[in-house]
């Protein structure tokens, strides 16, 4: 299989602080890959090494099967987490400038910029200055800057942040379209619902290390139908019974819980009915959010013991 991106035992240290620790993963061509992790886990540090802003202390980064060089970066698009546009320049000037830096001629750049602006419903804003736009609109412009040179590989850091639901939808469609064209996309986010719907594979990083890696479907399947979603009214003291419940996320009248190893879901339902009215009881695969919290919590426990 051809990999668009390969990280091979990459480590990056700033003074004493290990930002990325022995991180390895591969992204197959044409996949949408989710890079997840809590704040400060090392996502941005990893991404910076993928686009050559920083160089790993050890380990190797390969793109399109070759060691990373500046030349290869013309085939990569990057959307930073925060807006990176010249505020005093017009939208179209910004886009053409960034496209030129990626090797496009002015004519092509202008044509494509206008096409994208139309598509993302910004058609009439081309000649406005960036500072006149709302945050969400700027985010869309930033997205165009990342894809205008038709890169084969796109690295998007929190692409949906600041977007209203309608804009999110437009952007999601654009992403799926790019995927259909065979492009590879890496997401960095902590919005689990988006990841769950879009990503093929994920890597969960915490404290600079990879703690969970694989095809999303496989990961969820490996947890089995060991989770319970319960809609209830009343009290559920059984949530604190370690023989039944390994962990839970309680919203007051809705709870997601993981069964303790070997616990019988039927016994749990029976006990629950004694203290509360049950409106819905479903045995499901755990949501990514549960897996995320669970994994992060357990690695935290390990590291604090160590």
């Amino acid at each position: 299989m051809a990999f668009t991106l390969e990280l091979d035992r990459v480590t990056k240290t700033f003074d004493e602080f290990v930002a990325v620790n022995d991180l390895s993963f591969n992204i197959p061509a044409g996949e949408i890959f989710g890079l997840l992790g809590p704040n400060g886990a090392g996502k941005t540090s990893s991404i910076r090494m993928m686009i050559g802003i920083t160089v790993p202390d050890s380990g190797a980064v390969r793109v399109f099967g070759q060691p990373l060089t500046r030349k290869l970066l013309d085939r990569v698009g990057y959307l930073p987490e925060e807006r990176g546009l010249y505020k005093k320049m017009k939208i179209i000037e910004n886009l053409v400038f960034f496209a030129q830096l990626k090797g496009l001629a002015v004519g092509d750049a202008t044509r494509r910029a206008n096409q994208w602006l139309e598509r993302l419903e910004l058609g009439k804003w081309g000649n406005s200055k960036v500072e006149e736009l709302s945050k969400g609109m700027q985010q869309k412009v930033q997205f165009i800057a990342a894809v205008i040179h038709e890169p084969e590989f796109m690295i998007l850091d929190e692409p949906f942040s600041g977007l209203d639901p309608a804009s999110s939808l437009v952007l999601k469609d654009a992403l799926l379209d790019l995927k259909k064209q065979g492009k590879t996309i890496l997401f960095s986010t902590h919005r689990m619902d988006t990841v769950e719907r879009l990503c093929d594979s994920i890597c969960l990083v915490n404290q600079g290390r990879s703690v969970l890696l694989g095809v999303l479907r496989d990961i969820k399947a490996s947890y089995g139908r060991s989770s319970v979603q319960l809609e209830y009214e009343g009290e559920l003291p059984l949530l604190h019974d370690p023989t039944l419940v390994a962990s839970s996320n309680d919203f007051g009248n809705y709870v997601e819980l993981r069964l303790a190893p070997g616990a019988d879901p039927q016994r749990l339902l029976a006990q629950a009915m004694q203290t509360a009215t049950i409106r819905k009881f479903e045995l499901v695969e755990p949501s990514l959010e549960e897996i995320f919290i669970d994994t992060v919590e357990s690695t935290k426990a390990v590291s604090s013991h160590a």
């Binding site: 990057y78 930073p80 990176g84």
Partner: peptide
Amino acid sequence: IEEKSSRVCEVLLGSVT
């Protein structure tokens, strides 16, 4: 300062040294 605070340099550094 402008490029740093607007994070433009992060985008630029993907294309230039």
